[in-house]
Design a protein around this nucleic acid. Sequence first.
DNA 1: TCTGGGGTCCTAGGACCC
DNA 2: TCTGGGGTCCTAGGACCC
Length: 412
Amino acid sequence: MNTYIFHIDANNAYLSWTATYELLNGNNIDLRKVFSVIGGDEKKRHGIVLAKSQKAKQLGIKTGMPLSKARNLCPNLIIYPPNFKLYEYCSSAMLDIFKQYSSKIEKFSIDESFMEISTVENPIKIAYKLKEHIKKELGFTVNVGISTNKLLAKMASDFEKPDKVHTLFENEIKEKMWNLPVDDLFMCGGNSAKKLNKLCIYTIGELANADIQLINFHFKSFGTTLYNYANGIDESKVHCEVKNSNKGIGNSTTTSFDISDISDIRLYLLSLCETVAYRLRKQNAFASLFAVEIVSHDFSKFSKSKKINISTNSTSYMYKLILNLFFELWESNTKIRKLGVRVSNLSYDVYIQKNFLDDFDFKKHLVIDKTIDEIREKFGDDIIFRACFLNKEVPKNFNRSTRTKLELHSNL
DNA sequence: TCTGGGGTCCTAGGACCC
DNA sequence: TCTGGGGTCCTAGGACCC
């Protein structure tokens, strides 16, 4: 019996999921076979490429690129809006299939998972079976990377796409991985690649054979990680899905136009706090570290955080803290492009929401939050909203994971 | 119509304590 | 009374991933 690690990656996930869905709904164009991308709403300043077809990729269109630039590269580009509900659905459908092959599965992102397979069979055969299974049942293709650790499996699944199975075993590292440019290495992004290039390191192989002292001098402890990865070394285990494993929760939004009006800002922050606190309560979590983040009109970033000696998931308490942090951080003439609220230092299933020095009535607010959550879950999000959102002209908002109250307001 | 949103991990400097 | 050093926590920001 041998144990292998598979890394399964949905090819151009958002785009091929959308393509599959459109085909099912009578669209006779397969988006995967034309110049197409999934992109945000430019009017709301969310206009970037979230996913692209192979053909669009060939023209140089990249994920994260502004749509205007993508359109310059391809004037006939077909742009589809994102549909995150669909993506969540496809992601969990894929996981359901994985579970038929192994019980040791780690969901790495919405479109990527690791899987541990112990077998006497040829793992390549199993990978092909899995790949075809997904294609037949769900209508989209995946790449499967096979190796003996997660890093190598992930690197393998990134080789030729789409709809392929690749192996990258230890004895294949030199031949299959070392000639790749160094920024193809997992965790080696643009900044690290630039730094390595300055040290005359251009390929993964050159990094693997470099002087580790030199790498560590320039990269500190991260240097060892990069060096080990280049040599195919990764000891991390497949972490089966653990409930309540979040380290933090955040919600941020780019506003439709730069804002500096206090009442607008307050509404945005309240809306963000409501989302974050609700998500905390949903998973029975409490946070003690709170941060507010600002991206100003010129893209400079600022943040301010505070650790408190209690843990809470109360919307109102969070809002109070965030508002204080915001006003300590913000210079009132700075125009804001993006606002974010993030909480961390989470604790689970413990009720430690007490503070004898504070006059905030947690008990009262707990009841209010709980009641609002229940009503929303039963009758839908828009059934209830704070009075301050009424009759208030605020910019429309778009949010990936949870609709914010601002958006709800615009739908009323 | 220029540049999203949700995460994790690390580091460096300062505060504070002994 | 001329100045230490170790340890830990907090905070801001940066790099990377998808």
